[in-house]
Nucleic acid binder design. Structure first.
Lengths: 214, 214
DNA sequence: CCATAAAATGAGAGTAACTCTCAAAATGTA
DNA sequence: TACATTTTGAGAGTTACTCTCATTTTATGG
């Protein structure tokens, strides 16, 4: 599942593209050039002030090419390719483990992988999602997509129909809760560990609100 | 709160604009003309094929005016002005009543009001939200906005900080669950009563998933 | 190594949703 | 009726995105 600030595949180090043809390697380089240009420009000017033309210029490709690699501007900063991996990971968890513990485990995995990759980019994504409606919206869409995988994992565990309203509502309430966790993190200046916030969020999703104020 | 397919204020019948000046009355008429034109065109051609220019033509105003009344195309079909009313209603519920029951009550109120107003439009909104990403996205934004009001009501009831991650996550999980309910309703051809689906959704949000498959 | 197929790129034209500005028209008020 | 205020329309400009087609670049088989 989307760890809310997901980057590339957790296991894709720069070294793992060995016997790819020149064509494929070039494509990867272009993709990364576009992304790097975009992050750079956004850091300098902000999201809205950054145009596709500027991105294309800095990445040394044409605007057409930018759109060939990413369907929309928001996707340049967001796209994560490994949501399916996480869903798989979820399903691979021992059947005896409680649902919440499985989610917790997978979320921690994802966050760790992400931090190992590029913690700054991870924060930038969360920040953009919190600030820019278009980015946030795209992120919600992406997480909802993942929600469909979630449903199946949930349904399997609980012996329910993945298309029942119960499972759908349950899955989406998780998505909503985790999305909000990311927003909270960004809005509060990335204070503390994201994993700790996720733990607190999962507690709420499991048990509801704590009974009394501390 | 957004009853997922909200229309105008539940209490605004055509008769309730009595001693408004000519100016105000005209504005309301223009607003409704734009909306009517939009719904008509969408029904005929679909959302994407309907342009602002066509809408302006049919409503007999200029495109500029359309944008003056609605900030974006999606807002023409969505805008509901009474989310705050629902939040107020929520807070007005007896303090002894359980949180879930309060939400249930208010949701039923909203759905009823909506059905009384224009059930076809209510369905059309849900349908568009399910089909058109831009509309769905705008709806999520709108519900999240409402979420902020929700937080306060929740915090008040539970004696918690409305800005704590716990309350935020809890509120957003409700939003997510109710949003999904609307999608489910639309995707399944509006079969059955929306209120019944909402009840089932709230059960899940309160108690988690049912233990066994029927 | 060369010819040829296949894929990727760039250039350019086109669309549609907005935004801004300014002058004209409609309305309210004295 | 005159004047101030508000609302509207017209038009120009920006930008994200789409489509098409010619050109370049890479892969492949002889």
């Amino acid at each position: 599942m989307n760890p809310m600030t997901a980057a590339r595949s957790p296991y894709s180090s720069p070294a793992d593209r060995p016997q790819l043809g020149l064509r494929e390697r070039k494509k990867i380089k272009t993709r990364e050039a576009i992304r790097a240009a975009t992050y750079g420009l956004i850091k300098e000017q902000g999201y809205d002030a950054t145009t596709i033309e500027q991105i294309a210029d800095r990445a040394e490709v044409s605007p057409s090419t930018v759109f060939r690699y990413f369907p929309a501007k928001e996707d340049i900063v967001l796209t994560d390719e490994y949501d399916p991996l996480m869903a798989e990971e979820l399903r691979a968890r021992p059947a005896g483990e409680s649902w919440i513990d499985s989610v917790r485990h997978v979320m921690h995995l994802a966050i760790d992988a992400n931090n190992r990759e590029d913690p700054e980019v991870a924060r930038m994504r969360a920040h953009l999602a919190a600030q820019v409606p278009a980015v946030r919206s795209r992120m919600v869409e992406s997480m909802s997509q993942t929600g469909r995988l979630l449903r199946e994992a949930i349904a399997e565990r609980h012996g329910l129909d993945p298309d029942s309203i119960e499972v759908r509502v349950y899955a989406m309430s998780f998505i909503g809760g985790l999305m909000e966790t990311s927003m909270y993190w960004a809005e509060n200046g990335f204070k503390g560990e994201l994993s700790d916030l996720v733990d607190r969020a999962l507690d709420v999703l499991e048990h509801g609100l704590p009974t009394e104020k501390p």
